[in-house]
Every structure is written in C-alpha cells, then in structure tokens.
Amino acid sequence: MQPDFKSSTHLHVIRLALTIAGVLVAGILLRQALLPAGYGTSGRYRPGAELDEANRTVRNLANDACLACHPLIRKLHLAGTHATVSCEICHGPGVDHVQDGKLAGAMPTVAGDVIGPVCLRCHGQVARLRPLDSIRMVSASDHLTGHRVRADNDCDQCHHVHAPMKWVREAREMVGLAAEPEGGRPWTN
C-alpha cells in the first residue's frame, strides 16, 4: 500500500456509481414530469389525440347542407339523373361558401365553354375504360354530330347541369314525341 494517496482505493468507483444512480433517478423523474398526461391509459398514444383528429374542420359539407339553402336547385337536382353527383365537386368545398352560418364567399360555377371537360370526366367515352352499364358515355364530337347539333355546342346548352334530361324531356313533350321507350334501350355510343 502506498500511503501517499489522499483518496481511498474505492473513491472513484463509489463516486461513479453514485453519479450513475443520480442520473438514472433524475432521468426517471424527468420522464414522469414530461410524460403526456394520462399516457397509456387508452393504448400507447396520447389520450385526446383522436379528439384532435375528430375536431378537424369539415370542409366538404355534403349535398344535404347545400340543398337545404337552395330549395329550387334541390328540386331540380334530386329529381334528375345527377342526384348522386356531389355539389362540391363542381362548386368547391362548402366551407369556402358558408362559415358559422354566414356567407363567406361566392362559389364558382362551371358553365359554357369550360363545362365540357368536367362532364367528360364521367361521360367521356374516348378512353373506353368504363363498364358500359354504369353510366351514359359519349364521345363529345360523335354525340354532337349524331344529334345533328353544332359541333361547338357546350354540354349545358342542351343539358341542365343539375337535371341533365329535364329540357330534353320537355322538348320531346313539346314536339309530341313519346317520353321514352318502355323498359329503356341499351345505351348506344
């Protein structure tokens, strides 16, 4: 044994062990302090996280909401073959129109020479991609020439966008043609 050492043989080991223990305890306490309240009570996530998600703003208000304030459009829209078409895919999300029960802004309308591509996203036949029995499909140019209509006609000149066959039916009645054949006929292209 050398007598000239001031520290005991085990001092450094004891000090290190105490330091490590101290760091561990501090770490555990710190973790308890910082842990989100109630963490783990309902699963391994922060309680309330699902409520944060549930409280996200609803931006598409759905047709019922739109039609509640637009009774005539409601009448037209629900009576026609476009009853299942969402208002908001043409007019944009309702939240841009009404907020807190007040008018927030005007909605865009699609009409005239920009309407063709919008209609053809569903009715376009050129891609030949859709099940034939799901929806009426047309090739725009064939449709126009086939019905002996000017080639630069826009879709909404004959078809009311909310009730596509309304005017057609009325015109048919006007000139005395049968409303439609019994049982329908397979759609022709």
Partner: peptide, 19 residues
C-alpha cells in the same frame, strides 16, 4: 475527469483492470 480520486495504488489499479 478523474472524479477527484488520486489513488493509483496497485490495489486500485488491479480493481480498475478487473472492471
């Protein structure tokens, strides 16, 4: 850095070696 210990006795160094 030496955590305040100056003990370099053979006993201490042997213990260090084992650790």
């Amino acid at each position: 850095l030496a955590v305040g210990s100056d003990n370099l006795s053979a006993e201490a160094l042997a213990m260090d070696r084992r650790i």
